[in-house]
Write a protein that binds this DNA or RNA. Structure first.
Lengths: 231, 231
DNA sequence: TCTTTACATTTGTCCTACAAATATAATAGT
DNA sequence: ACTATTATATTTGTAGGACAAATGTAAAGA
């Protein structure tokens, strides 16, 4: 009879908390709430929406977790600058992430790694290059590079992009990347294949070359990973 | 006296709800909870942690929002596959996002757009190319491309990567990208500059060329945006 | 006018209660 | 002994009351 409803049904099964959460976010958007603006107090919201204070608090608790609002005990609540990645951070658990999501994250790193060339060349400073050289020199003496060495070099590259979100995003994704690759290759950790393009090579190109050449080299450096994306 | 505590202080100011949320997530990770596994009931958790059921419910409400757990009324709670991007989605409100975050997102799109070349070439199918050609042909007859035309072409590219998360991620980021660019250029919408490299050019390269050539062309296509990243 | 005091406000936390639907146990019927 | 029905227990969702504690505000006093 109501088979026509189809996609509508999930909406009806929303709990009060879900609905209040949605209503609040819409309310903020439509009224152009900005960081620092004061919110109505919990009781007021509850009475206006005709729900219990419990429900309102459960919804507010979610927004607080995202950094969207801030509650100053006994002084009321205010809007705040949300933490863009707080939600993702809490969910990055290989045990519960779907295989599909894990694969997507694995690939996302490759995409990002190839896309940063322009930013590196546009924003590199002598100080950055000096620090990177130090890392490269240190690694030259090692017989094989550990996972940590990889992180140190690539992490420095993300720093150099000057994009804070990107930097943090990448550091969140890396453990998942590692986990996926490890489970694909079944290899014990701390063993990294010999690269046709070394960190030292990448460093030299970043110092003296072009974005174009850097991307080419980075692709070669990550070739072992790129070989996994053939459909 | 306790000035040495420094970074420790924020920890102490955590609410019970914050702490229970952390404890629960750690509990899930350490016990390797997988989707489908049953959780202890609310009262049990509350008693074990010596807090009220309210506090537990506020913490659980957060995890439910992230899709981490699922509550089946009157049957208990189970682990579930979290929605990787649910947290970000709710927070993408230009009014409250920091300028810095908005700029980061703007740049992130450029990074992604440049990084997908390998995936496009590795995974393109004849069907994809046909559909893309249709879009390009349609746009050829237009004097100027609207925002929607841009989304249609680039959106199809994201589809072709075969990476669902990436696809969705991109569609979430796009409005912010548009917002940032509009506020930078102060231009009214629906006006897109004439590109040195057209969508038709990109299509031809994707069909007959190499990832290398595609990246080069895409960079030229997005040059007007890339000009903003010079520090 | 300034200081002190009393009061009101508001979040954080705890408690109790109950509806409703499911799972489980108990009972009745054949 | 087995099935069908009924009763009971479980558990989330929601409501509502209570109070501590700290802050802001108003009132009172010097």
């Amino acid at each position: 009879m109501n088979s026509k409803l189809g996609l509508l049904e999930p909406l009806e099964s929303l709990s009060m908390t879900d609905r209040v959460e949605n209503i609040l976010r819409e309310y903020f958007t439509e009224n152009a709430f900005k960081p620092g603006d004061a919110l109505p107090n919990e009781l007021e919201i509850a009475q206006k929406l005709n729900v219990s204070r419990n429900v309102v608090r459960e919804a507010l608790s979610r927004l607080r977790m995202l950094g969207m609002i801030e509650a100053r005990p006994r002084r009321g609540m205010i809007m705040s600058q949300p933490d863009l990645l707080a939600g993702i951070e809490k969910v990055l658990n290989p045990f519960i992430l779907s295989q599909s999501n894990q694969k997507d994250i694995f690939e996302l790193r490759l995409i990002l790694e190839m896309g940063i060339a322009e930013f590196l060349f546009a924003r590199k400073t002598q100080k950055d290059l000096d620090e990177l050289e130090l890392i490269v020199e240190k690694q030259k003496s090692l017989p094989v590079l550990s996972k940590e060495d990889e992180i140190e070099f690539h992490g420095k590259l993300y720093d150099m992009t000057g994009n804070e979100t990107f930097q943090r995003f990448q550091s969140l994704l890396f453990p998942v990347f590692e986990h996926v690759f490890a489970s694909m290759t079944n290899q014990k950790d701390n063993y990294v294949l010999v690269d046709p393009v070394s960190h030292a090579d990448l460093f030299r190109i970043l110092r003296d070359g072009t974005p174009e050449a850097f991307r080419k080299a980075m692709h070669k450096h990550l070739e072992v990973y790129y070989n996994t994306i053939k459909k």
